[in-house]
């Protein structure tokens, strides 16, 4: 680690002692690596940065015939509707709570699955189970909603048919808001675990097998090997994933919520309404794109603050893992 830190520092130190002209020299020195990054830089300039000034839409009364930048400036008026119904706090809370559950439980499960897969020896079982766990990722959100209804519906659902068969009382899933957080989180885990564990599995594959063998010879048992070698090895991967998901902590998974809960089941709103579904309802009555931009700006700024804080903490604790 120490030698690495030195190599990072040295070029900057050298640069600072030199004169102005060296900017070009510096660029020239890194020309190949810079060129290698160029396609990506241009890509993001066009597809991400070029539309970004359009966020100004959040502050105008958008007139289609005038365009975004000539429309009348209205300040924070477009943000007003968010606070007016008094739902903002509940929505923010729901969105963050769900996302935290997704991040924490999702990563734990993905890591667990990746580690277990790595321990299994039967190749056939490994292949088949991995493929199957991958399946839910291919089912689009609309279909997930359709399936969920056919499983959970009161009159004809698969679940209630089963309960009736074994002599139990059928359950009224769709009028019971308390159980929906579980249904949503489970559906999320069901859909994302196979997919997400690939990253961790690939990371374990990159681990030098001789280290594990050496530990084994030193008498470490399987639990110790997992605890002291594999899990620490996965830490950087986890941190990257964490920083990426934290940036979107206020952005909800619209497809999942909308299709599972439906647009009309107002009984379930207390526990299932998130910012995205709320905004969608607002937009459906009067397609006001400015309102949409206002909300997405609120989410982005919130995410930026969280990520900068998290990155700052990570920098303090383990600098080599911070994102920037």
């Amino acid at each position: 680690m120490k030698t690495e830190a030195v190599t990072v520092q040295s070029p900057t130190v050298v640069v600072k002692t030199k004169t102005k002209e060296s900017v070009f020299k510096r660029l020239w020195k890194h020309r190949t690596l810079l060129l290698m990054c160029m396609p990506a830089i241009i890509f993001f300039a066009i597809f991400a940065y070029l539309p970004m000034p359009g966020l100004y839409l959040a502050f105008v009364n958008y007139d289609y015939s005038l365009g975004i930048f000539d429309s009348a400036f209205v300040g924070f008026d477009n943000f007003k509707f968010l606070v007016m119904t008094g739902d903002l706090w509940k929505l923010t809370f729901n969105t963050i709570a769900y996302n935290l559950a997704f991040i924490v439980l999702g990563n734990i499960l993905q890591i667990a699955v990746a580690i277990m897969l790595n321990e299994l020896t039967n190749k056939w079982f490994k292949k088949v189970s991995q493929t199957i766990m991958f399946l839910p990722h291919f089912i689009s959100a609309v279909l997930v909603g359709l399936l969920a209804y056919n499983i959970l519906s009161y009159d004809y659902g698969v679940l209630n048919s089963f309960l009736k068969m074994v002599g139990l009382d059928p359950v009224q899933t769709y009028s019971n808001p308390e159980i929906w957080p579980y249904i949503i989180v489970i559906t999320f885990l069901w859909q994302s675990t196979g997919y997400g564990s690939i990253v961790y599995f690939a990371a374990i594959m990159g681990l030098d097998k001789s280290i594990l063998e050496a530990a084994e010879i030193d008498g470490a048992n399987a639990f110790q090997r997992i605890r002291y070698i594999i899990i620490p090895w996965l830490k950087p991967t986890f941190i990257i994933l964490l920083l990426f998901s934290l940036g979107g902590v206020l952005k909800g998974n619209f497809g999942l919520f909308y299709n599972l809960v439906g647009a009309n089941n107002t009984m379930l709103y207390p526990t299932t309404d998130i910012i995205e579904t709320y905004v969608f309802r607002t937009l459906m009555t009067n397609f006001n794109f400015s309102l949409g931009s206002a909300v997405s700006l609120y989410q982005s700024v919130f995410g930026l603050v969280i990520v900068l804080t998290a990155n700052w903490i990570i920098r303090k604790v383990s600098p080599e893992n911070s994102l920037f």
């Binding site: 359709l146 009224q172 769709y174 809960v261 009309n264 107002t266």
Partner: peptide, 9 residues
């Protein structure tokens, strides 16, 4: 109508 009419499509 159905018990879970609100989700029926």
């Amino acid at each position: 109508w159905r018990d879970d009419v609100l989700n029926y499509k």
